[in-house]
Amino acid sequence: MLNKEIREILSECKERGWVMEPQAKEILRLSGVETTEFIWARDVQEAIRFANQIGYPVVAKVVSPEVVHKSDVGGVAVGVSGDEKLAEVYTEMGKIKGFSGIIVEEMVRGIELIVGMKLDQQFGPVVLLGVGGTAVEIYKDVALRMAPILERDVDSMLKSIKARPLLEGYRGSEPINIEALKKMLLAFSDMVMELGAEVDSIDLNPVICNASGCVVTDARMMLAK
């Protein structure tokens, strides 16, 4: 059964047809999928206060019901280094259509992956893992499995992507925390099964993985019509 809070978020977003990042991250957090520490700031003071609390540099991203792909409209600023710069970014993003505040979150470094879900017409929910970032559709280095997935499916997904050496520590870099990634995929698969036919597709992109763990830094859910 779906958690009451999750159900509330979904019904709130029903009309729009998709779940914006802050709400999507809330659903993930309630489902045991780790996300970045963030705030959905509706004014510049709130944004600055939170940035000081977590420490600069931070990431700022636009929240707008009109914008599905944020980086396409200049709605993502990384490495924002101080109060003044953050205020500038806030003003600039304020011009984006449908502006409803910004997300301020910690900067995480590591390898960018994508974890996703699609409600397939013939097979129902399907889970995806691959190389993330804005160029995902160029490299298409992904593995797909029908949900729910088991640990052996996670292993075979990790084995099948070409970028696997990057995860294992390529040319002197530290290997990522594979256990954390596996745990995330299994929790994500459980969440997807719980959501059932309500959600049409999900992108967690990027999921950033490093030696200490894996966190979802951006998330979007498209609801079923």
Binding site: I114, G116, D120, V126, E137, M146
Partner: peptide, 23 residues
């Protein structure tokens, strides 16, 4: 028109082929 990355990469045939191998 607007698709998630996952939806556009998980086309019908890609899913079919992956699921067959999975099982």
């Amino acid at each position: 028109a607007v698709k998630s990355h996952t939806a556009s990469m998980a086309g019908n045939y890609e899913v079919f082929s992956a699921v067959m191998a999975q099982y």
